[in-house]
Amino acid sequence: MEQTLNFRRKPYILSGYSIGGEKEGNGPLHEWFDFCLDDDTYGENTWEKAESKMLKTSITECIRRADKDTDDIGAMLSGDLLNQLMSSSFMARDLRIPFLGIYGACSTMTESLMLGAVLTDGKYSDNVVIGASSHYCTAERQFRMPLEHGNQRPPSAQWTATAAGAMLLSGESGIEETFADKEGKIHNMKKVRIESGTIGKVIDAGVKDANQMGSAMAPAAVDTLLNHLQDTGRDLKYYDAVFTGDLGYIGKKIVADLLSDSGIDKDQIERIYDDCGTMIYEPRQDVHSGGSGCGCSASVFAGYVYKKMKRGEINRALIISTGALLSTISPFQGESIPGIAHAISLETE
């Protein structure tokens, strides 16, 4: 059975907004963030409140950029890594927009995009705003050790991004926008549309080490990507770029190897494929195996990828957020770490 949804109306992404923390702002994508924190507390007295504020800022600024008001939004879909979706739920409490909380671990961004596209494509809602966030300090406290503990991280561990991203979907094309190139010439920005989405299956590779997230999620990313290509009858080269969510250096290499084993040309993989977890930080920042967290792919997709597409530097992109579906107690019960990945196909006009 096909896993891919083909959207007849091809919903538009009217706007995007991305926030990075202090560490992310010092990384290679700093110019692609709309806003970077000087202090990861963001003026709040707890890390959790700071994360919720980041998400709220992303959502509200995304709405404002689309020349909309909160009353124009029919639904808001958002998620994070915290228990009871604390960041999203408390953000939604303030905005008073009809809200659906989404949990897909680090796959939340593309899961939200897909469900938001279903709502707009089916004309259930004219405008849907989606978002996701994570914070290094909140994730460490919930899933690993309190920062005060100062525990050592193995080389395979990834760094949860302090970041948030939001996008506004609509059945309408929105306002015309322009940008200036390096020479000062003015160009019309392109429109970005959601062409299709592939729902992922839970894939369990048997990995039990919570410091090997990339290894746990990589098989799910490959399964979703191959099913997307099969459902659509496309080759990988159909896309200008393919991005996975936050597999990091280890997971990215596993994906490349598995795709090569499936018959896809290695040079093609190297030319087209990248991972948000390897893009968001530089090796000098000592993040070991790269970035992770809901906010990792959310901020890269809403910032770097979306802006590249608006400028016509990428015309067809496949974005695949990946999630590790463990809980705070499942590793202690001897469970392995199931993975999930959802794909969204974007195109410009």
Rank of each mutant, 00 (worst) to 15 (best):
S321T: 09
D246G: 13
E24K: 01
G104H: 10
S262E: 01
R284C: 07
R284W: 13
H288T: 04
T138R: 04
K310H: 10
V128Y: 04
E195N: 15
K49G: 14
K56H: 13
P146N: 13
A241T: 09
G165S: 07
K10E: 14
M167D: 03
G293C: 02
L325T: 04
D257R: 11
I59W: 03
L95C: 07
R316E: 14
L95E: 12
F33T: 05
E349G: 07
E176C: 07
V300F: 05
I344T: 02
C62H: 08
C294D: 10
T178C: 14
D209H: 08
E31W: 06
I319W: 01
H187P: 03
A218I: 02
D223V: 04
F35S: 08
D235R: 07
E148T: 09
V287D: 12
E183Q: 12
S262D: 04
S18L: 05
F179L: 06
K253C: 10
M309A: 08
A302W: 11
S52N: 10
T57S: 13
D274Q: 08
Y306P: 02
A221V: 03
A324S: 10
K191G: 03
T41Q: 12
G200E: 05
K253W: 09
R141L: 15
K23N: 07
G291W: 06
L85G: 00
T198L: 08
Y304C: 11
E270V: 12
D265A: 08
A161D: 01
N45G: 00
L258I: 06
A132M: 05
L147R: 04
G312E: 03
M91P: 02
Y136T: 14
G104M: 10
Y136I: 05
F243W: 12
N127Y: 15
M279W: 02
N227F: 12
E183M: 09
E270R: 13
M86I: 01
S88D: 03
F99D: 13
I186H: 07
P155S: 14
S289L: 10
D94W: 03
M213S: 08
L5W: 14
L325W: 11
I337M: 07
L236A: 11
M145S: 13
